[in-house]
């Protein structure tokens, strides 16, 4: 926790610069964690566009990434969910047309990562 500003240090009219909420991690709210099976993904972007927390990053891939059926997906592809912000709502898993996403309990995920 950073030091709080004094009244002399405050911005005029408490104006804020852009996008400071990136410093506020909402991942701690999560009870369920999305697990993405990239080999079943068709990079349809449904989960990305639906994600309420803007927590599924995308990139432009010219060489392509392997997805469902070993197919190469070029262009805009999704990456791993950003767990710093994902609140675990499960919309991505519910709406995924290939069921390449599933929700597991956060403590299970943590235990699994401990074992690793």
């Amino acid at each position: 926790m950073s030091e709080r500003k004094t009244w002399q240090e405050l911005e005029l009219g408490v104006e804020l610069p852009a996008a400071t909420s990136l410093g506020y991690k909402t991942g701690g709210w999560r009870v369920l964690r999305p697990v993405w099976n990239a080999s079943e993904c068709i990079h349809c972007m449904i989960c990305v566009n639906y994600c309420p927390d803007m927590a599924i990053p995308v990139t432009k891939s010219e060489e392509g990434v392997a997805g469902k059926g070993g197919r190469l997906f070029k262009g805009v592809v999704r990456l791993e969910t950003n767990l710093d912000y994902c609140k675990g709502c499960g919309i991505c898993a519910h709406e995924c047309p290939t069921k390449c996403l599933s929700m597991i309990r956060e403590e299970e995920a943590e235990q699994a990562s401990c074992k690793l």
Binding site: L22, T26, V48, N49, I56, V58, V76, Y85
Partner: peptide
Amino acid sequence: LQEIALKTDGADARIVSGH
């Protein structure tokens, strides 16, 4: 959907995570 996804992520996003 690909074009839209690209515009809502990264530096071009007009609203970001942490809300």
